[in-house]
């Protein structure tokens, strides 16, 4: 399974232009990469979020695939119902069997927080679906609030900076590992800049007979406070600092997908976005050092897990 730019250029469009996503937004890039990579028709389930409200404003829709949005937390369960319907209708001879992908796009709020139970249930039941978490580290659709994916020290509208608090106090949860603990066939982390990595992982995830989950880092220039033109550069910085390593857990085997040639210190990440401007002050050096240590520990732990597998 390889993906070439030449083949990509020949693919028909998967998400119609004219939608309302911001200039420089990662989400449409992720969606198009995922749907291109599938190479087969998809039925899509969306969680409530920027992607859904920006692509479906009645009477228009940007969706060229059949798509359903039900609520914020239940996108994984909605696709469970679609997949179950497909199985039942084919079994009863009312629908012709064909190769379709069942795909969910949901943000980090819908995945890490409000929809965790619904996702966990769908994973445990083993439906055949590919779940793409488009992770922009916060509730951006409702106006940049902290989520379970936001790291400590981050400014958001619910973790503002003041004399008593320097942004979010808590660390993020390790959602990818939580999903991997469900022992589903395929789990991965990717990022919007790593198109080849993401598309290869989508193909692996779509090929398994069961659930697959890919957690994709997706910078939000409005929430992260950076220039729209820097989306891809900033996404790359997340992997170069090892804040967001690229790896996969393929049938239980942990494999590193990318090892940065030279690890960048986390300060470069903080300098690249306005949401971290307070961390550049001298009095917050202790906080920054603490975050660097945390990233170092997690990186070391990941390397340990990936030991023995080729990368």
């Amino acid at each position: 399974m390889t993906v070439s730019l030449r083949e990509l250029a020949d693919q028909p469009e998967t998400l119609a232009p004219g939608h309302g996503l911001c200039a420089g937004c990662s989400e449409s890039i992720v969606v198009r990469q995922v749907l291109y990579a599938l190479g087969k028709p998809a039925v899509v389930s969306l969680a409530t979020g920027c992607l859904e409200v920006s692509t479906t404003k009645f009477p228009e829709t940007a969706w060229l695939s059949p798509m359903i949005h039900s609520a914020f937390e239940n996108a994984a369960t909605t696709i469970s119902g679609v997949e179950a319907a497909y199985k039942a209708l084919v079994r009863k001879g009312r629908l012709e069997a064909r190769d379709i992908a069942f795909v969910v796009f949901a943000g980090d709020g819908a995945t890490y927080d409000i929809g965790l139970q619904w996702l966990s249930g769908a994973l445990e039941r083993g439906h055949r679906f590919l779940y793409i978490c488009i992770n922009n580290e916060g509730y951006m659709n409702t106006g940049i609030q902290r989520s379970g994916a936001t790291i400590s020290g981050t400014w958001t509208t619910t973790t503002p900076v003041g004399p008593a608090l320097q942004g979010k106090a808590e660390w993020r949860k390790d959602m990818t590992a939580i999903v991997a603990a469900h022992r589903i066939p395929y789990v991965a982390q990717s990022a919007v800049h790593a198109w080849k990595d993401l598309m290869t992982k989508v193909q692996r995830g779509a090929a398994v007979d069961g659930p697959a989950f890919i957690n994709v880092l997706a910078p939000c220039n409005r929430g992260w406070r950076h220039d729209p033109k820097d989306t891809i550069r900033i996404s790359k910085l997340a992997t170069d600092t090892c804040l967001w390593p690229l790896y996969e857990v393929d049938h239980g085997v942990w494999r590193l997908s990318h090892r940065p040639r030279q690890r960048e210190p986390i300060t470069g990440w903080f300098q690249s976005q306005g949401r971290f401007s307070h961390l550049l002050k001298d009095e917050n050096k202790g906080l920054v050092d603490g975050i660097q240590r945390r990233i170092d520990e997690e990186w070391k732990e990941l390397l340990e897990r990936c030991k023995g597998s080729a990368n």
Binding site: S45, T78, G81, A84, Q117, W118
Partner: peptide
């Protein structure tokens, strides 16, 4: 399913399909 909310959510997906 793992809850009643999920029960109806799954029915919604199934009925839409």
């Amino acid at each position: 399913v793992e809850s009643e909310h999920a029960a109806l959510s799954a029915c919604i997906g199934a009925a839409a399909a």
